[in-house]
Write a protein that binds this DNA or RNA. Structure first.
Lengths: 219, 219
DNA sequence: TGGCGATTCAAATTTGCATTTGACTGAGCA
DNA sequence: TGCTCAGTCAAATGCAAATTTGAATCGCCA
């Protein structure tokens, strides 16, 4: 890791790391500064010293997690721009799922919590960081579905894909929330699940597409 | 509505109704007893009198919502037991989506919040109430996927379907959380979305099934 | 009518947390 | 050696929200 100059930077860094982990695990409200500081081996007052308040720590922690994950998960999944569109979509889905499944990737887990219990604190950041990715996804879907696809069909297919991806987060979360109980689902083989979502979704998209085409003939 | 005998039952009922709505909207932590009592036109102390504490109110409110929805949304979606299995699965998915979309159905919205921010308070109830429905779903999926489908494939398909259904809740939630901003998705036509999920999912399931069959030939 | 258990109420108490304070530490430097 | 200043610390403060209390009220029935 990049070695840091002063002791304060080390503490600040530990705070950000612990905060992103705990915010991802419990959400903004349920996370306490005391807990974060304890896990970061820092004093309670260090949050105030380094960040001013809990809200700023939240924002900075998300940014910290997000930047940390940048590059590690290219949005295109490493698939060439020249590849067929379904392959590019597949790469994108796989990359997203791997990122969501990564126990050290907190930015999406925080978003997940934020969507369930909006604090509105991240709203601006999300708009700026997530919307571009969303638009790229829409572009791929438009290609897959054909030019006759309606805006609604695009949105629905997007929802179908994202819903499956986030379901993974939900199941992960539930598992870690109750260690003793029998697991409702085994999501340990992420690669297999990612492939499943790709196969399932591409089949779904082709079905929607083939519904759309006949309309053209009828018209 | 069923007329209630005593005034206390009325207050108790108003508390349960208000509580289930507010817990569904904000989750356990973010809901305050003061808010619930205000909306139920009851005194702060009435929660303590009727339920003892906030946790018990939470449990009772979920039960109240769940019972209230019983019958309104038959799990089979009104499709005959003799219908082809894909049709029965379709009915089930549609029924689930309509229920999730219903602004007056709180039990699933509370579950949704509970999954994102587990309080563990509902764990036992959920196990008892939800697992049967889950098992029925697995039965249908097993039929659709064929006898050669693995347990993992079943779980993955289940996750794909439930993920899409819950995505609707997520989007609804986000919409009501930020009134002014441009909507990320238009989910106003629930019937259309329900049909989309059915078409998308059945196509996905058939694709998984056709992957499975060849294994048998190879063997 | 008067008494009594069931409810309701406003006000007090307690709790859990974020935030603030002011004293302490230690490294760098003249 | 003594000054400065970024960081650290334990303890105090403040506040919002849950919980408790005890007095007031209601509805019913002897």
């Amino acid at each position: 890791m990049t070695d840091l100059k002063t002791k304060s930077e080390k503490t600040r860094d530990r705070l950000l790391t612990a905060a992103s982990r705990i915010f991802a695990e419990k959400g903004y409200q349920d996370s306490t500064i005391a807990d974060i500081c304890e896990q970061a081996q820092a004093n309670i007052a260090s949050v105030n010293y380094h960040f001013g308040d809990k809200q700023t720590l939240y924002l900075e922690a998300w940014r910290h997690a997000f930047n940390h994950e940048l590059g590690q998960y290219p949005p295109d999944g490493g698939v060439s721009q020249q590849a067929p569109v379904e392959q590019r979509l597949a790469g994108r889905i796989q990359s997203l799922i791997r990122r969501l499944a990564d126990d050290d990737s907190y930015s999406f887990a925080i978003i997940h919590k934020e969507m369930a219990q909006p604090t509105r604190l991240l709203a601006d950041i999300l708009e700026k960081e997530i919307n571009p990715q969303r638009q790229q996804m829409f572009g791929l879907l438009r290609e897959c579905l054909g030019q006759d696809a309606s805006e609604q069909q695009l949105q629905y297919c997007h929802a179908s894909i994202m819903g499956q991806c986030f379901q993974l987060l939900r199941l992960k979360q539930m598992q870690q929330a109750r260690p003793q109980r029998a697991l409702p689902s085994d999501m340990s083989d992420i690669g297999a699940f990612a492939e499943h979502v790709v196969d399932f979704s591409l089949a779904g998209i082709r079905a929607i597409r083939s519904q759309t085409l006949p309309k053209r003939i009828q018209a």
